[in-house]
Write a protein that binds this DNA or RNA. Structure first.
Lengths: 340, 340
DNA sequence: CGTTAAACTGTGATCGTTCACGGGATTTTT
DNA sequence: AAAAATCCCGTGAACGATCACAGTTTAACG
């Protein structure tokens, strides 16, 4: 096979068009001070040589990489996948490249931070939904001098920019709905309680029970891991420790699927014997048996919003100004279907 | 707030350690010709200044970005998400950065190719599962001189490196299973037939029917779009145009969920009145009602394999050698559950 | 017609790192 | 003991683009 060809550079284009590299650069960047004739000649040269400017060389001199770092956890769950999709879409539209870093454990933070700094990202969207601990903050401090950080779905720390969905409100809507349907023994299957979003959903459940004057005990709560299978186990455990159960709020749709399955196996009829409400509103939820009542949260929009905010902050920063991100909570809404 | 601080460079470290930049570079890259004492001094300086070498400057001089481009389509479906997860994992392990490009339409190819070339990726994993047409090949040709390309789950073109799962075999296994269960009127709900994987699954269905001596007609086939909702519509359409239906092979699990839902609504009992087999084996499938018989394909492993192969090819290329990727098909396997 | 401004284009330095090369100090070889 | 080899470290150029500045040509004005 042929050997690796030398890259076409701006100088090749310049020579081919009979101008200087600077002029080619001006054409590339739409600077005004180029005559129409020259511009056309340069553009023809670019096309003929199939020249593509090196983003790397450009980043080096401009001290701006055009990249946004995204720190996320596994996208085998609906939420993170949706969020990432929104981020990706908006980033592409605004011309940003994403440097995706998957963290599966806080021990990854060091590697992630090192990589993001080395790649000189201009901003970081931190979508890894860990509880904010001192340990993590230390890493964030490492990152902060290099790039603004935007947190998604986390606890709002002091002076940190956080965007999220109002998980607590969503959960409350769900549980209030169950109460309105006459249920009084409402169980809860949570996500991993190390996560802020899972904690918030639990608080929402408590809020609703409290404002209806219903007491709650630990017997009503089981912790899952977001997976369908854990929802399945969760319902069995719940029935054992809290037999009077007549409804469950499940902290995500995937676990709710497991709950429906377990209920079916145990001969419980949903919603007659047991009402079920989920959280996420993934497209599949409408096809669960029975179709799932759930809380809709627009994580795609949240991802888009995050990138738009980041874009704003970075532009300000490039211009030497300082821009703050206004913390924001998106409102979820209840989607009522057959399971309640 | 404070102004943006100047980046710590290799020269700062050199000055701080009382050596030249070249020596610092040698320490960074584990070159032998540095005395232990100097090495230690440099490392201390690095730590004290929290110095992180600029990946950008390094890429420029080395003419190697350490990045692999990944072209994929939306990860709201299980397959692509799984694939991406595998790619990501292996890339992190081998120290590659990913430049993720999401294509939603062939019209995106130009932007994607331009970006990947500009970022100087050293290899491209093309996981966007479009049918290979001449139009696309042209874009691949554009990319090829810059970086080796590895295709996933596509038609093997002339001399192109393709890794995939044997979709056709998987589908055949599924349908043979239905035949072995005594079904004779086996419908098919396909994915978008512009996609190679969907075509292959259709061929597998035909294979199995043919080798069992069963004829098939167009009435037995409906096209979906991978979504649960389309599976739902699909079953209704199928029953209308082919009332003798006693089993369906559905080309992915998400559509199979829709099929189960529609069957339930129509009062069909699965598997008594209608057997259903899916494709993917997503974790949730075990919790469908009834639990879904499906074809397991290890896309995570495929993604990992793709990166390992790419790593091998790039290393060879850097060393001036030429390495080919051996085309490979992973074997799927049938997972029998309650729906058949 | 000379002066000034505007329009256009080129030169050299620069971003942060590594490569190619060279040279001095120390050790080993004959 | 001189020559050769080894070890250790530094200098200047290079990667491919842009920035700051300066120069040349053309148009506009009094």
């Amino acid at each position: 096979m042929s050997t690796k060809p030398r890259r076409v550079t701006i100088h090749d284009v310049a020579k081919h068009a009979g101008v200087s590299a600077q002029t080619v650069s001006r054409v590339l960047n739409d600077h005004p001070d180029v005559s129409e004739a020259t511009r056309a000649r340069v553009q023809r040269a670019i096309a003929e040589l199939r020249y593509r400017p090196s983003a790397i060389a450009r980043s080096l001199i401009k001290r701006a990489s055009g990249m946004i770092g995204v720190v996320a956890s596994g996208f085998h769950f609906f939420g993170p996948a949706q969020l990432l999709a929104g981020i990706e879409r908006q980033a592409t539209e605004l011309g940003w490249q994403l440097m995706l870093q998957v963290a599966t454990d806080p021990s990854d933070y060091d590697r992630v931070a090192t990589t993001l700094i080395a790649q000189q990202v201009e901003g970081v969207i931190w979508a890894y939904p860990e509880l904010s601990s001192d340990r993590e903050r230390a890493f964030h401090q490492q990152l902060r001098p290099h790039a603004p950080i935007l947190f998604l779905s986390m606890e709002a720390g002091s002076g940190e920019a956080v965007l999220s969905v109002d998980n607590r409100l969503g959960a409350r809507l769900a549980v209030e709905h169950l109460i309105a349907r006459g249920r009084r023994h409402i169980g809860l299957i949570t996500g991993p309680l190390t996560l802020w979003s899972a904690q918030q959903r639990r608080l929402g459940w408590e809020d609703a029970l409290a404002s209806a004057g219903l007491p709650h005990t630990e017997r009503q709560v089981v912790q899952g891991d977001w997976s369908a299978e854990s929802g399945c186990r969760g319902l069995r455990a719940l029935l054992q420790q809290y037999p009077e159960l007549d409804a469950v709020f499940v902290s995500n749709d995937q676990m709710a699927l497991g709950v429906l399955y377990a209920a079916h196996q145990l001969g419980l009829r949903v919603p007659k014997d047991l009402s079920v409400v989920g959280f996420d509103n993934m497209p599949e939820s409408a096809c669960f048996i029975p179709a799932l009542t759930t809380v809709h949260q627009d994580l795609f929009a949240l991802g888009q919003l995050a990138v738009r905010e980041m874009d704003r902050v970075i532009r300000a920063r490039r211009a030497g100004k300082q821009a703050a991100i206004a913390p924001l909570m998106l409102q979820p809404r209840l989607v009522v279907r057959e399971s309640s």
